[in-house]
Amino acid sequence: MNSVEGEREALAQSLRTRDPEVIEHLIDQYQYRLFRYLIYLTGNREEAEDLFQETWIRVLERGHRYDGRSKFDTWLFTIARNLFIDRLRSKKTQVSIEEFSDSEGPESGNGGSPRNVPSPFDLVSQGEVYGQLSGLMDRLPFPSREALVLRFQEEFSLEEIARLMAVPISTVKSRIYRGIAILKESLEDSKHE
């Protein structure tokens, strides 16, 4: 067993004890990444905050299910994503599950974003670095946006993203391709304006 596997196994064991101090330590470690992902996922700061709390409570409750074989962050983000999907299902508003899960919807406009919600970037408080990206991400279909965030912000591998999003790697690749292509064009347009 190498050191990374050893660390994961140790984490899995400590999660089984349901010790809140372990969760507190993990919150400190993953707060930014998880919250950023949830902001992108929900497009709404308030909902992202709710899900942030729910995710950690779920980690406490279901910690014994983490076996240490996969990376903890993949497991954590999967929990957050499942909670978000559950929430969408129960609310049945704004975004259809199809649109979220595997739609290859319109490539521009707000087709892929939750409707009638402001840009995540508008909702993220002032003083944060987002510059030209503000608004551009909203033009992306939702699955592409999520794939881009997971790949380039969270630095997950394609395999991990595929597992997390429950789609084949080829789908992840095509979502990233579409996302970058749109983002690149949007940035070029904004440069010309």
């Binding site: 003083g127 944060e128 030209q132």
Partner: peptide, 12 residues
Amino acid sequence: AVRTLRSVTVRV
């Protein structure tokens, strides 16, 4: 585009 994407930070 990728650099810009990586530059976003979020405050908790």
